[in-house]
Structure formats: structure tokens, C-alpha cells
């Protein structure tokens, strides 16, 4: 029955405006639908192929290019950072070595200065000691001489007092002999 209504022109809608049968099968409307579908598809095709798709494709390509470049730049920066780190480490090592050198040099200089000062001090001490020894020697000599004189005089007086004759040379020799003992 439905197919029957389709074949009758103008019979797809009843008097009340409701569909008779399936509107999908109404042959009367099909040319209209197909015509407007084709018009729409052609319009969409032109919009897509002439404007939208090239534009979006270009944007996507540009984006992937930008991302690739950015990644490459980041890689570059990373390498530079690594280089800088190596240079820094090198500088640090160099500085350490130099510092060690300077310390060693300073130590050597101080040592040399110290040695010189020590030598000077030793020399001064030695000179002072020698001087003191001489002075002590002189004092001792003069003391012995005085004692000898006193002893000789005392011995001469003793001999005279005891009634002997005092020969000066004999007494001196005797005193000297006694002093040595």
C-alpha cells in the first residue's frame, strides 16, 4: 500500500498535513533532495579543498616545524650548558692547582726567610757567647794575677817575720808552683 501512494504524485501528504507512508520513500521529493545534496556537497568540497584543508595543513606543518626547531634549539642549549659546566670544572681544577702552587711557594719563601733569620740569630748568639767568654777569661786572669800578688807579698812578709832572708825570685817561683797545684 505504501508503495502505491509513492507512485501517485502529490500523494505523500494527506489533507491534514501528515505523512502518508514513509516520507523517505516519496519519489516526488527525491529530485529535490538529490539536487540540494549535490549543491551542498560541492559547496562543502570547495570550502574544504580551497580554504580549510590547505590552511589547517599549513598550520599543522608549521607547528610541527616549530616544535622540531624548538627541540633542536633546546638540545643546542643543553650542549652549551654541558660545555659551560666542563669549562667551569676545568677552571675550578686550574684554580685549585694554582692555589696549591701559590701555597707551596709562600711556604718556601717563609722557610727561606726563617732560615736566614735563624742563621742570623745563631750568629748573634755565637758572637755574644764568645764575647762573654773573653770577658770571663779576662776576669779570671786578673783575679789569678791579684791572688798571686797577694800570695807573694804575704809569703815575703811571712819569711821576713820568721827571720829568714827573702830572695824575691825564689819566693815568686815557690808561690807560682803552689798556685799551679
Amino acid at each position: 500500500m505504501a508503495t502505491q501512494t509513492n507512485t501517485i504524485a502529490g500523494a505523500c501528504v494527506d489533507a491534514g498535513g501528515s505523512a502518508l507512508g514513509m516520507p523517505q520513500l516519496c519519489a516526488e521529493w527525491m529530485p529535490n533532495q538529490i539536487f540540494w545534496l549535490i549543491v551542498t556537497l560541492i559547496a562543502i568540497f570547495f570550502v574544504m579543498s580551497r580554504i580549510a584543508l590547505p590552511r589547517i595543513g599549513a598550520v599543522l606543518a608549521e607547528r610541527s616545524g616549530t616544535i622540531t626547531n624548538d627541540i633542536a634549539a633546546a638540545e643546542d642549549f643543553k650542549n652549551k650548558a654541558a660545555e659551560a659546566e666542563t669549562a667551569y670544572e676545568q677552571a675550578l681544577t686550574d684554580a685549585r692547582a694554582k692555589a696549591q702552587e701559590i701555597i707551596a711557594k709562600a711556604k718556601a719563601e717563609i722557610q727561606a726567610d726563617l732560615d736566614v733569620a735563624l742563621q742570623k740569630a745563631d750568629a748573634a748568639i755565637a758572637a755574644k757567647a764568645a764575647e762573654s767568654e773573653t770577658a770571663i777569661g779576662e776576669i779570671r786572669d786578673s783575679a789569678i794575677k791579684n791572688i798571686t800578688e797577694v800570695a807573694t807579698d804575704t809569703a815575703k812578709e811571712l819569711v821576713l817575720a820568721l827571720g829568714g832572708t827573702a830572695d824575691a825570685t825564689t819566693i815568686t817561683a815557690a808561690v807560682n808552683a803552689r798556685m799551679k797545684g
Partner: peptide, 16 residues
Amino acid sequence: LDQFIVKPAFGDGAVN
């Protein structure tokens, strides 16, 4: 099924 009816958008008449 009335939602599928094709009708002229402006005025009445046959659907050419």
C-alpha cells in the same frame, strides 16, 4: 514520520 516531510520553505506549492 511527519518530521521527515519535505515542504517548501517559503510559501506553499509543489516540491520541484
